[in-house]
Design a protein around this nucleic acid. Structure first.
Lengths: 241, 241
DNA sequence: CGGAATGTTGATATGCCTCAACTAAAGTGG
DNA sequence: CCACTTTAGTTGAGGCATATCAACATTCCG
């Protein structure tokens, strides 16, 4: 029970120290739970949210909607993440959020979060730190989509997701549920569907990994890391003591 | 005198309300000034800064350094911006910072900033908001470099810079100093130098803008905005009352 | 059982990269 | 002050990676 508070604290502890007072403060937060269908939107561009969404289970994604109807996926979020933390201090959403596969989110009122920040600044700083790591991930996505060839780019994305899931025990051995379509992968990496398909085949042929039916299987982590030119420093995960 | 505190407050007031106590707190911050040569680095990947840099005059840029020596520029920063605010809560830099053209920065000790946040939470929230808008700009850069063709992409970048400079009176009529080389523009937009050159020519031919000798001249803002599919909502500038 | 969404494959087109040659401007040293 | 080098910008030719298009296979779902 209380999965909501637990996943939030586990996530924050990856990078921040929480005192027992902070833990008590977090445990006092109220929330409501919402179950999402695959691909269901829970925040749209232009919304003015009054609550923060916390991913409890499953995954969520941010995306931009372009004039021509195309989507650009921006980032993916796992249990413990607060994908719309920015709305705490910015009124209007500049992007939308949807579930990737079935997911559960908890909604925590902004007003409560802010009051908690005032009572326990360390909690506010931890959430702030969370949003800063999020920004680091966005920077890496710029570099990935702008400066790397498609195979490297795709390998890098899978590396990041696998690493982030692994850093907090959210993956299952060497496999990770990532229930996304090839079209969505293309709209993440900025490449056409046909190319997504062919690139996945070359990655499979490399014996480093497989991706099918929304499941990523890492067969040779070292090799995948090399293929993706992946260096996890930007994720700022505190070295586990 | 005191240009440092002034540019910071002007920038924060674009989106946040500051009480007189907040203003007093900001005015009490100590700093040291540093003048930078064009392209001079002031923070490198891997550094552990103990001070925050505030751009006082000129411009600064973030960049990633890739394995093959290539650079990927990530964002540009003008007077009032705190391009390394993230270092307040994340120890190691995952990217470098350099001057674009000659620039002046002020260094403010982290320890003082944090103490000010504890005394005046609204000041902390304003800086936090600043880092969140920064993240929105990064998201837009992902979309720009991933989903738009090169001409639109380049027009969008110029729109953003011109708009940001204009929002706070940092531009000069319809021209803006942006002392960057074509090679750097290419490393920002993820395109080759030759293409940068040819794309600039088509933009010039469109009568919307010109860019030469490190100066952007906007001749037809509406047309440029259309060419760049530019919608400034993501910059979250408070409508001027 | 039929239709929609998703994935797969091949053929063709094209936008951008690469390379190379050249110009122009700026900085350097004799 | 002028040769020399370096850096930045410009232009053309050619190739290649990836987009686009089209046909088909497969799975899912009503």
């Amino acid at each position: 029970m209380e999965a909501t508070h637990r996943v939030l604290m586990r996530n924050l502890r990856e990078h921040s120290r929480l005192s027992s007072e902070d833990v008590a403060e977090i445990s006092s937060l109220t929330y409501s739970i919402r179950r999402l269908e695959p691909n269901e939107d829970f925040i749209c561009q232009g919304d003015v949210p009054k609550v923060s969404a916390l991913v409890v289970s499953g995954m969520a994604a941010r995306y931009h909607l372009l004039g021509n109807g195309r989507r650009q996926y921006l980032s993916f979020h796992m249990s413990g993440d607060l994908p719309d933390a920015q709305a705490l201090f910015i009124t209007h959403m500049d992007h939308a959020l949807c579930a990737i596969g079935a997911a559960t989110i908890a909604s925590i009122p902004h007003s409560e979060m802010i009051k908690s920040f005032l009572r326990r600044p360390a909690f506010g700083f931890a959430i702030w730190r969370e949003t800063l790591i999020d920004a680091a991930i966005l920077r890496e996505a710029i570099t990935n989509n702008s400066a790397r060839d498609v195979r490297t780019r795709m390998a890098h994305l899978f590396c990041e997701l696998f690493y982030r899931a692994g850093a907090s025990g959210r993956k299952n051995g060497n496999s990770l549920a990532f229930p996304i379509s090839l079209a969505q992968l293309g709209e993440t990496l900025g490449i056409a569907i046909a190319t997504v398909n062919r690139t996945l085949q070359t990655l499979r042929a490399s014996q480093a990994m497989e991706f099918r039916d929304g499941e990523l299987i890492v067969k040779d982590w070292r090799r995948l890391q090399r293929l993706g030119e992946f260096n996890p420093d930007y994720l700022h995960v505190k070295p586990v003591p």
